[in-house]
Structures are given as structure tokens and as C-alpha cells.
Design a binder for these strands. Structure first.
Length: 733
DNA sequence: CTCAACTAGGTTTTT
DNA sequence: CCTAGTTGAG
């Protein structure tokens, strides 16, 4: 019980209240995670609750991982509770019961890019005027529907049956059918289908109700309707549900988060115990005061007031820059200045409203050779090259994935262009089979010119050889092999541009991600790996130990903290964003976001804005953010010090002597990784004959039994494996 | 079929 | 400003 002494009175009360519904209203920095982890420890260690019966859901993988790690550190061993994100919890459940809903067990998860591609196809197919209806228009509506939920059939009943609604309903319907046909679910489906599953098959629901007798939900203020139903259905049986949240930090309403979930929790469940955590352990009182002066302009909020016993600390710095470059250079030099006093780079964070703001900062930071890390924005697998290679992997795993095939069949260029592909698609549609299957038909292939048909053949051969070997190969070897043998890497190298170089770099980085997974679980299979990737946001990759300044949106920063925080772009129209005024509650949500941003800071906070800002190629004069006007002025240190110094001294030279154009080389892992990859593949010798001794990275040493030039049979300790010559990573001994 | 040159449209935030 | 998509010349 000693470990509970680290908690304050309220925290302890929350941790020890294990039976019945519990609402923890936890202000920013009030030790929420600590309370939750101790609660789990208390339940398992003191109350004798089997960890197997505990379910804890979070929004991000990062939060889930952190909670799990912290519990395991406290108890000193692993535990078999489910501590997962909503989406991965649903995915896990669906994997075991998908057939109840008519899906195959190995259904794919489609990410937003896939969704967009599908909608584009449908728009084309229906001949819809692409100028009036964009893919994102449909996707937005569809996603909203799935949150309610409203099916495609119900759509016109709800929204009338004018042309517009009919079009939407039609697209929605086709989208759903296409998903089903591809045996795929989108992110919304994961939740929706789990709830459907629970409704459809009571034994399944009972099974999980019976397992999860104790349920915890993090960031409850951000749950949407489906997430609420998911939790509610599971919790109904035992009623041991603990939700943690802060209505002031609800920043996902635009995405369907329903703030009523937390405001009405006390009505939803009977005899709710409420605990308020109001002592902030994170920030100085100046920072807290600033946060409070902003958020108190919101009308609809549960009453609570954070307090701290920390000192006032430094005042908040506000700097009004000339333009966004000046803003970035100011921040970069402030980091330099602070850094000298034995601080590490990862003590600094730059939190902005929109991802597009990151560019200027990247420039300014690299010019000063300040290491930085941009999180979010284009996610890893949204980048073209990552998406491409992922599609190769997807196709290897599941040859029926038409979406993946279409994307890569001519990437890199192998002379299979639009015309050819169109023929193949219609043919496959007529024959009601996957495109890949159609490609395997010799008759079909021979109907094309000899050049095209041989191209097709080598493509199918490439996929097939890895597909048949996928059980034997490590993911990293499949990855290397595909990159090299598809010619993808070569095509990039031949471009010989800076851009191609950075693409290669990204591919190498992706490879190190693969290595990490393999290190954690040497037996990880391709499907397992793909699954983890699908639900991974880049923020989850944030390594707090890396000595680099962190750049991300305020949204992504929720749940994190930094000693020094910069919030640039404090201008009306940017923050709060102009779009905030479309929605009734939009401004309040922006204000909550501002609150979240400010409360990330532990010691010092800088706010900046620019007089002129170039956005989408247009330069405009700006007005200082209304949030600045709301801030308690007595907490701000003026910008007097900076006003007099012109930061731009002459052409391209900045006041601290850094010259424009001095290039910045990040690091040269890249060359090394590429050499290794090539070497790895060259090792896979193709001139093997019976009797040779070889070594395989996964199976160890073995003896070649036979080799016909295509397939080699090797005995590893009596275990005979068939491997494809030229593809398996074999080393002749 | 590919490549280059051009145009139009779009940007909030994310699992 | 950037990207994705289109068009026209090889």
C-alpha cells in the first residue's frame, strides 16, 4: 500500500474506489495517468482482482502504451489486461467474430487514403460531377452517418430525397458494398461493427461482459456516440466503470466527440461517485493563471478551478513578429538562448494550430542546426513512398487487395498503363474475381502485346514468390526484397533529386520501424505487422528521450508536457481558425484547444504572432488573436526587448550571424542502411546445389537438399523448408 | 505509354 | 503555396 502514499487525498480516493461507476474530473496536469495506473495496481494487488478482467481504453496508442508500461513497472511484471485504444480493442474483438457479420476473419482495415480512393472510383463510375462533389464531401457525411449510426438505406428517410441526398445515399451505398466486397472495414466500421456484433449476437456480448468486469476509459470527454455505446454495452453487466476526463479539454467535437457523454455521465449510470482532481502538479502559477484566464471565457463548463502550490515562475513572453519567418527565427534563437543553460532540446516544443505551419520552423531550426522532430502532419504511411511499399506488402499478404494492386502495378513504371489496367479491371469485374487472379490467367495475358505480357508476368512472379515465402521470411527481408526487386528503389535512385533522396530516407526510416517490431516480437507475422501499422499515428512514434525539439499540432500534444512551450500563430483566422465560426460551439472548442496548448507548459511559455503572414501564396496582414486579448495582461512580459532589434540584417543574414542557405545535413544513416540492404540481397546466392551449407537469418544454418534453380530445399536441423531461389536471404557458407 | 507542362482546387484538427 | 489531375507531344 506504500505506493499509494505518492498520491494526494483525492487521487487516492479515486484509486481505491473500485466498485460501481466512478467519474474522475481531472484537470490538466492533475496526475490523471498516475491515478489511473495506481488504481489498476490497487485493484490487482490489494483487491485481488484478476487483471484478465480489466479493460482500459484510451484514444492513442501512446497513451495506452504508457499506461501499460507504468503499471508493469509498478508491479514488476507483465499483466494480461487489455490496455488498448478504442480502435484496437474493437479490431481485436472483430477479428475473432467477424464472420457473424459476414466478413472474413482476415478482413483488411482501410485508412483514409484508401477510403478516398474508393470514393473517387465511385464518383467516376457514377459519372458524378467531380467539381460539385468532392470525395471529402462524401466521406465527411459517411463518417458522420456511421457515428450516429445511419445506414445508406436510411439516409434519404432522414435527410429528404432531393437530388443531393439521393446522390449521397447512392455513393454511400456503393461505398459500403465495395468495402464488403473487398472484405475491408474503415476506421468508423471498427467501432460500428463491434456494436453491431454485440447487438446481433448476445453470446458474444456476454462473453466480453463477463470478461471485462472492470472498465476504465481515458479522455472520456472525447468519446463519440459509438464509443459510448461500446462502453455502455460492455459495462452494463457489472457496472464497474471508471471514466476520466476534463470537459475543458474536449477538442474533438468536430469529429463527433459528444461532450454530453461526460456531462451526463451521472445520469447515465446510477449512484455515480465523483472525484475532482484540481491540484495541478505540472505548471507554474503564471502559466496556470494564463490558461485559466482564457478558458474562463467559455460558458458551458463544469465548475472547477485548478490550483497549484508552485511559484509564479517566469512571465509569459509574447512576441509580435514581422512575418512568419521572423517568427520562426525568433523561436529558433530563443531555443538557442535557453539551450545554453544546460537544457536539452527535447525540453522544447513548438505547438501550432495547423500542420502547414511546420515548414517555416523546420527551415529556421535546421539553419541553426537545432535538431528537431516533426510529428503528425503527413503521417508516415500517407507519404507516397510509404504508401506504395505498404501496398506491395498488402498485396503479398492478400492478393485479393485490388486497391493495393491498382496503386502499384505501374509503380515504378513497368509499362502497364491506364488502358491496360482499365481492360483488366473490367475483365476482373465480369469474371467476378480479383484483378490479381485475372493476371494469373495465361490466356488473358497473351491477349496483350508481348512486351506488356512479359511485364505482367514478372510482376505477378515477384508478388507470388514473396507471397509463397511469407511464412519463412522476416518482414524486413520481404521489405528489402520488394524494394529492390520491384525496381522501386532503383527508380528513386535514378531520379537523383533531393526529393527522391528524402523518399529513400523515409523508406529507410520505415525499415527501422520494422526492425523495432521484430526486436519486440521476433515471430511477428506480416498480417500482424500490417495491422499495427494501420492503426498507428505518428505521434505514437514520439520518442520522448530523443534529444530534439518537438514540433506538432496542439491536438497531438494533448496528454504530453514540456518544460518550454512555444505557441506561434496567435492570430485571428489562424487560431482561432476562421472555420470555427461556422459552428455554433466552434469558438469555444478553439478556446479549449488554446487551453490544452497552454497547459502543456511546465516552466515557460512563449506566444507569438506575425504581422504579415503568407498563406496559400497570399500575404495578408493579420490581427492578434482574440485569445491574446483574453489573456490576463499582468502575466505577460512585453515584447519591448525584441521590438528594437531588427532580426533581418541585410540580404539573407540574420542577427545572430547565421547565413541563409547554409545547408543542414540531418544524419547519414541512409547510406549505411542502403548498403546493408543491397548486401543482404546479394548474399541470397542463386547458385546453390545439393550439399551446400547455408545460413538463414531466421532459421540458422542448414544444408541444401536439392535445388532446381527456382526452389531450393534446405534442411534446418531436420526441418525441411522450401525457399525461392534468389528471394530467400541465404548466405552460402 | 511516358513525360513534361499546365491548371484548378484546397487546408484544421485524427483513430 | 502545394498537390493531384489533365492534356498534348513524343
Amino acid at each position: 500500500m506504500e505506493y499509494l502514499n505518492k498520491l494526494n487525498k483525492e487521487q487516492r480516493a479515486a484509486a481505491m474506489y473500485t466498485e460501481g461507476p466512478l467519474l474522475i474530473l481531472a484537470g490538466a496536469g492533475s496526475g490523471k495517468t498516475s491515478t489511473m495506473t495506481h488504481r489498476i495496481v490497487y485493484m490487482t494487488e490489494e483487491k485481488g482482482i484478476d487483471p484478465y478482467n480489466i479493460l482500459a481504453v484510451t484514444f492513442t496508442n501512446k497513451a495506452a502504451k504508457e499506461m501499460k508500461d507504468r503499471v508493469e513497472t509498478l508491479i514488476g511484471h507483465g499483466l494480461n489486461s487489455w490496455i488498448l485504444t478504442f480502435h484496437s480493442a474493437c479490431l481485436r474483438i472483430l477479428r475473432s467474430h467477424a464472420e457473424v457479420l459476414g466478413y472474413g476473419r482476415d478482413f483488411a482495415v482501410y485508412d483514409p487514403t484508401d477510403q478516398k480512393t474508393m470514393i473517387k472510383n465511385i464518383i467516376k463510375e457514377l459519372g458524378i460531377d467531380a467539381k460539385r462533389y468532392t470525395p471529402s464531401y462524401f466521406l465527411g457525411i459517411i463518417s458522420k452517418c456511421k457515428e450516429k449510426p445511419i445506414t445508406a438505406e436510411e439516409y434519404t428517410n432522414v435527410y429528404g430525397d432531393d437530388i443531393k441526398a439521393k446522390t449521397v445515399a447512392q455513393v454511400y451505398g456503393m461505398y459500403e458494398r465495395a468495402l464488403k466486397k473487398n472484405n475491408a472495414m474503415d476506421f468508423d466500421d471498427l467501432l460500428l461493427n463491434t456494436v453491431r456484433l454485440f447487438k446481433k449476437d448476445e453470446t458474444v456480448l456476454l462473453k466480453y461482459q463477463n470478461r471485462f468486469r472492470y472498465i476504465m476509459v481515458d479522455e472520456y470527454q472525447d468519446t463519440n456516440r459509438m464509443q459510448y455505446m461500446f462502453i455502455k454495452m460492455l459495462a452494463e453487466a457489472h457496472n464497474n466503470i471508471c471514466v476520466v476526463g476534463d470537459d475543458d479539454q474536449c477538442i474533438y467535437q468536430w469529429r463527433g466527440a459528444d461532450i454530453r457523454n461526460i456531462l451526463e455521465f451521472e445520469k447515465d449510470f446510477k449512484d455515480v461517485k465523483v472525484v475532482k482532481l484540481e491540484q495541478n502538479y505540472r505548471s507554474t502559477s503564471n502559466i496556470l493563471g494564463a490558461a485559466h484566464s482564457v478558458i474562463s471565457n467559455n460558458r458551458s463548463r463544469k465548475s472547477k478551478k485548478l490550483w497549484t502550490d508552485q511559484d509564479a515562475g517566469n512571465k509569459i513572453v509574447y512576441y509580435r513578429a514581422e512575418d512568419e519567418r521572423d517568427e520562426a527565427y525568433f523561436i529558433a534563437s530563443e531555443i538557442n538562448r535557453m539551450k545554453s543553460s544546460d537544457r536539452k532540446y527535447n525540453d522544447f516544443a513548438i505547438l501550432y494550430r495547423t500542420n502547414s505551419q511546420s515548414r517555416t520552423f523546420e527551415e529556421a531550426l535546421s539553419r541553426r542546426e537545432i535538431p528537431y522532430r516533426v510529428l503528425g502532419g503527413l503521417r508516415y504511411y500517407d507519404r507516397k513512398e510509404i504508401k506504395d511499399i505498404t501496398c506491395y506488402l498488402r498485396l503479398v499478404q492478400n492478393k485479393a487487395d485490388d486497391l493495393a494492386l491498382i496503386r502499384i502495378i505501374n509503380e515504378p513504371k513497368r509499362g502497364i498503363g491506364g488502358k491496360t489496367l482499365e481492360k483488366l479491371r473490367t475483365l476482373a469485374a465480369v469474371r467476378q474475381e480479383s484483378i490479381f487472379n485475372t493476371l494469373m490467367d495465361r490466356e488473358v495475358i497473351s491477349s496483350f502485346s508481348s512486351k506488356i505480357s512479359s511485364n505482367i508476368e514478372s510482376f505477378t512472379e515477384l508478388i507470388n514468390s514473396y507471397s509463397s515465402e511469407k511464412e519463412n521470411l522476416r518482414i524486413s527481408d520481404i521489405y528489402d526484397g520488394l524494394l529492390v526487386k520491384s525496381g522501386y528503389l532503383k527508380a528513386l535512385e535514378e531520379q537523383n533529386t533531393l526529393e527522391a533522396e528524402s523518399r529513400i530516407e523515409n523508406l529507410m526510416e520505415f525499415k527501422s520501424v520494422i526492425y523495432n517490431y521484430e526486436d519486440e516480437d521476433p515471430n511477428i507475422t506480416l498480417p500482424e505487422f500490417m495491422e499495427r501499422i494501420a492503426l498507428l499515428a505518428e505521434v505514437d512514434n514520439h520518442d520522448a528521450g530523443e534529444n530534439a525539439v518537438v514540433l506538432m499540432t496542439m491536438h497531438s500534444a494533448k496528454g504530453l508536457e514540456f518544460p518550454f512551450v512555444f505557441m506561434p500563430g496567435m492570430e485571428d483566422g489562424l487560431f482561432p481558425g476562421w472555420r470555427a465560426f461556422d459552428r455554433e460551439d466552434g469558438l469555444e472548442e478553439e478556446r479549449r484547444l488554446c487551453y490544452v496548448g497552454i497547459t502543456r507548459a511546465k516552466e515557460r511559455l512563449w506566444l507569438t504572432s506575425a504581422e504579415r503572414r503568407t498563406l496559400y501564396g497570399k500575404t495578408d496582414y493579420t490581427r492578434e488573436s482574440q485569445f491574446l486579448r483574453e489573456l490576463d495582461k499582468s502575466l505577460i512580459e512585453g515584447d519591448a526587448i525584441f521590438e528594437k532589434k531588427k532580426r533581418d540584417v541585410g540580404q539573407g543574414v540574420f542577427s545572430d550571424g547565421i547565413t541563409e542557405g547554409s545547408s543542414f545535413k540531418p544524419f547519414d544513416q541512409l547510406k549505411y542502411a542502403r548498403q546493408q540492404m543491397k548486401k543482404n540481397l546479394e548474399d541470397s546466392s542463386d547458385d546453390l546445389s545439393a550439399g551446400d551449407m547455408v545460413s538463414h537469418p531466421k532459421f540458422g544454418e542448414g544444408k541444401v537438399l536439392s535445388c532446381d534453380g527456382k526452389i531450393v530445399q534446405i534442411s534446418f536441423d531436420g526441418d525441411v523448408k522450401k525457399l525461392a531461389v534468389g528471394f530467400a536471404p541465404l548466405k552460402k557458407l
